[in-house]
Amino acid sequence: MREKLQQIKEEALLKLKECQNSQMLDELRVKYLGKKGELTTILRGMGQLSPEERPIVGKIANEVREEIEAAIEETLKGIKQREKNLRLSMETIDVTMPGRANKIGGLHPLTKALDEIKEIFIGMGFSIAEGPEVELDYYNFEALNIPKNHPARDEQDTFYINQNVVLRTQTSPVQIRVMENKKPPIRIIAPGRVYRSDTADATHSPIFHQVEGLVVDKGITMASLKGTLDAFAKRMFGEKTRTKFRPHHFPFTEPSAEVDVSCFVCGGTGCRVCKGSGWIEILGCGMVHPDVLRAGGIDPEVYSGFAFGLGLERIVMIKYGIDDIRLFYENDVRFLKQF
């Protein structure tokens, strides 16, 4: 019997070595360890053994069973591993094929630039104000120190609805409307559309966007104007940006200035964009004229303020090298998708 057990064990281990898949393995398990399996059959014949032999043979039989069971486990592990590897290799895909996702659209380049500007000023404590585009002559001109027959009215070719109503030529009327409705401290920007009766061509558009800024409080100085706009320029165009304030004239500010930033294309060494000068003009600004403060119901003896205005299209055109302003309003998706 001992020899028989030994024989079964060797045979089983041999067969397990040759076993290739889980089905064969199941068959082998039944064959050796099942209820009608070879080992069970032998153990049933234990009754015929002497009482002395029985425990010895029993022990051997158990050892054989354990050994076979362990071998089956071992084999099973190997088979599973092999089968998994096989599945993985069959499941290989071409990962360079395009992905699937919901289509995402995009914002207009002018909106994107405006969002950037808004974010910078919101970070400096500015709120966003709005005003009507169809505006009273009073707010667009008179209250801004531009009376009827002022030469500045000729410089800004104005669309009129009637004698008293115009399409605003600048975002500055929002200054007056804000001052009328809010007491200092005032810190706002007012982005929006403005209108000039220019026929559209590569550099002109009858509609374009400005961003107006207004700060009114006690102790506002020209130095704070410079500090604010310098900080804006650095955040908008990069920390290395330098600003240059040049005296200029606007009816609604005194003193007034135009602001150049060091060319954000060449960094100031001179290129085609800055026409070799290293500087790009980006905005006009100044200390709010006392007449304008008074028009807004604010006492210029107590308060002072500064204001600025920048043209959005111009900045975006320079930034992206767009050579035709009409592209902004044509809305060709091949253009819109680039931003």
Partner: peptide, 22 residues
């Protein structure tokens, strides 16, 4: 200011009470 030089006028932060953007 213009004869003194706009570029020499210092750059400062806005002084006064802090204003929160609304």
């Amino acid at each position: 200011a213009r004869l003194y030089g706009y570029d020499i006028i210092p750059t400062q932060k806005i002084v006064g009470e802090a204003v929160e953007a609304e």
